[in-house]
């Protein structure tokens, strides 16, 4: 009864994916760590941020990877050091529209280490990198506009870091200075208080 129907049963897809694996093992995984995740997708560990960007560039021109789509760019906290030395892990989720294969590039980053921006390769990286900066405080070299995106600009701290308490709040005043009632403007032809019309 428990019939499994998933894309992994598709023979043609399996062939492309195994080609991709062979290519990754032969060319890219010589001095890098290649893993698979629970969905059998390749995860390649880059040596450093520059190497990660170089890998993305290489995958974009490689015939057997044909990466042309940045599915997601994110990071996660590696506070417990389970993935190795480095405070954060930067994650690129790459996708190929033609081959339908996914590749994940991961890269360990130190607490103050700078990552390389992908904006010159994918415009989509712009907001995604801003989000990573906003949430983790990872800075990106050569990013055109690295500001907070989801949180308020006055926010301090990086909420998705593990040490940030979930219940911490930072309330702000309205970020527009103009307040009704704060500095009332004199309006002509208003009735002066105390002398209502008809009470003369």
């Amino acid at each position: 009864m428990n019939k499994t129907i998933s894309f992994s049963s598709n023979a043609k897809f399996l062939e492309t994916q195994s080609n991709l694996y062979t290519r990754l093992t032969e060319k890219y995984a010589l001095d890098r760590k290649l893993e698979t995740d629970k969905l059998n997708e390749p995860v390649l560990w880059a040596k450093n941020p520059e190497d990660a960007k170089m890998l993305v560039k290489a995958f974009m021109v490689d015939e057997s990877t044909k990466v042309d789509f940045l599915s997601d760019l994110t990071a996660y906290d590696n506070e417990d050091g389970e993935d190795g030395e480095g405070r954060f892990v930067l994650v690129y989720q790459l996708y190929s529209i033609t081959l339908h294969t996914r590749i994940r590039i991961k890269c360990l980053l130190g607490l103050t280490q700078q990552a390389q921006s992908l904006v010159d390769l994918f415009s989509a990286a712009n907001w995604l990198e801003r989000e990573v900066y906003d949430m983790y405080g990872i800075t990106f070299a050569n990013h055109p506009n690295l500001r907070r995106i989801l949180m308020d600009e006055r926010f301090s701290g990086f909420p998705l870091r593990k040490e940030y308490p979930i219940k911490q709040r930072e309330p702000f005043r309205d970020n527009i200075d103009f307040h009704l009632g704060a500095n009332p403007l004199q309006v002509e032809n208003t009735i002066v208080e105390g002398t209502p019309e008809g009470e003369k």
């Binding site: 995740d37 629970k38 969905l39 997708e41 995860v43 599915s71 997601d72 994110t74 994650v91 989720q93 996914r102 994940r104």
Partner: peptide
């Protein structure tokens, strides 16, 4: 232990959970 990036075609586009 483990990780997965699983995507579906949502009405608005690719909805993924990593």
């Amino acid at each position: 232990k483990g990780e997965a990036f699983s995507c579906v075609e949502g009405p608005n586009g690719e909805l993924g959970f990593y």
